[in-house]
Structures are given as structure tokens and as C-alpha cells.
Measured scan of single mutants.
Amino acid sequence: MQIFVKTLTGKTITLEVEPSDTIENVKAKIQDKEGIPPDQQRLIFNGKQLEDGRTLSDYNIQKDSTLHLVLR
């Protein structure tokens, strides 16, 4: 499925993911596309910070959902 990740600069990254993917996996995909190390990434969905060990389906993230990427 496709999800979107919006950065603070207003750029939107499109990712191909599975609901069973962990947040860690998603961060690795963002690193592949953008070169941002996962330990600098914080992903936010519906105002909640997403934890590495959880999956997209844990957070009820579905296709065409938009996550927000904050760098630390």
C-alpha cells in the first residue's frame, strides 16, 4: 500500500509499505529515499509519536495515510 510522509519543509515522500511493516522498517525506507538516519527521525500520526517496535496496523495506518516526519 502507499503512504505519504510529510516533512517540515513541506516536501511529501511517497512510500510503498505493508500494514505489517514496523515503524523501524518505515524509517529505513525514508533513509533509503532521503538519506536521513533513522535515529534522527520521529514519525507522528494523528498527533501520536510512533514507536519503532510497533507496526503500521497497530496504529491503524491505512493506505494513503499521511505521517509527519520531525527531525531531532
Rank of each mutant, 00 (worst) to 15 (best):
D39Q: 07
A28I: 15
K27S: 07
T7W: 11
E16H: 13
E51P: 05
Q2I: 07
I30S: 02
D32N: 10
E18N: 15
D64M: 07
L8T: 14
D21G: 09
F45S: 05
K11V: 14
L56D: 00
I13R: 11
N46G: 11
G10M: 13
N60W: 07
F45I: 13
M1Q: 04
E18M: 08
S20E: 09
D64L: 14
E34S: 13
N60Q: 07
F45Y: 13
I36H: 03
K11S: 10
K33W: 14
G10Y: 03
A28K: 11
L56V: 10
Q49V: 08
P37G: 04
K33F: 13
L50M: 12
I61F: 13
I3D: 00
L50E: 00
Q62N: 11
N60F: 03
N46S: 11
K63W: 06
I30P: 00
K29M: 04
L8Q: 14
R54G: 09
I23T: 11
N25S: 12
S65I: 03
K29I: 07
I23L: 13
F4R: 02
A28T: 12
Q41K: 06
S65E: 05
T14F: 10
I23M: 02
L71Y: 15
Q2L: 09
I23Y: 05
S57T: 07
Y59A: 07
G53E: 04
K48A: 09
L69F: 02
S20K: 11
Q49M: 11
R72S: 10
I44E: 05
V5A: 03
K48H: 07
E34G: 07
K11F: 03
K33M: 10
D52M: 05
I3N: 00
T12M: 13
L15G: 00
S20H: 14
L71S: 04
T12P: 14
T7S: 07
K27W: 05
A28P: 04
S65A: 08
I44V: 05
G10D: 14
G53T: 12
K48G: 14
D21I: 03
T55K: 14
A28L: 15
K48P: 02
L69P: 00
S65T: 10
M1A: 07
